[in-house]
């Protein structure tokens, strides 16, 4: 678990320490380049987590695993 924490911390720190000027963000601002909850622009299925207990990232009993097993 420490390894995961270290990797995560490094990813966060390395994620971006310098702002990219807005005038250079034309391509990364296109609708399909943005991370969005909109169903039109979201690429994740809302139904498949019913089958894949380890795929949901949004909490709740379903995301936490099976809802009926011990």
């Amino acid at each position: 678990m420490r390894g995961v924490g270290f990797v995560g911390l490094m990813a966060l720190l390395g994620a971006g320490c310098q702002a990219v000027p807005v005038m250079q963000q034309r391509l990364v601002s296109k609708p399909n380049m943005v991370f969005s909850d909109s169903p039109v622009f979201s690429y994740q299925s809302q139904v498949l987590p019913q089958i894949e207990p380890g795929s949901a990232m949004s909490g709740g009993a379903q995301a936490a695993g099976c809802t009926a097993c011990q």
Binding site: A11, A15, G16, Q24, L27, V28, G59, G65
Partner: peptide, 30 residues
Amino acid sequence: VIDSLTYRLASENVLNPRIRSLTEFLMTDT
């Protein structure tokens, strides 16, 4: 009855004029 607590930390970044990234950490306490 199941009680769950979730903690999420996420960082979204424009790394350069062509790349946007999202890093998410989640901890669930059930």
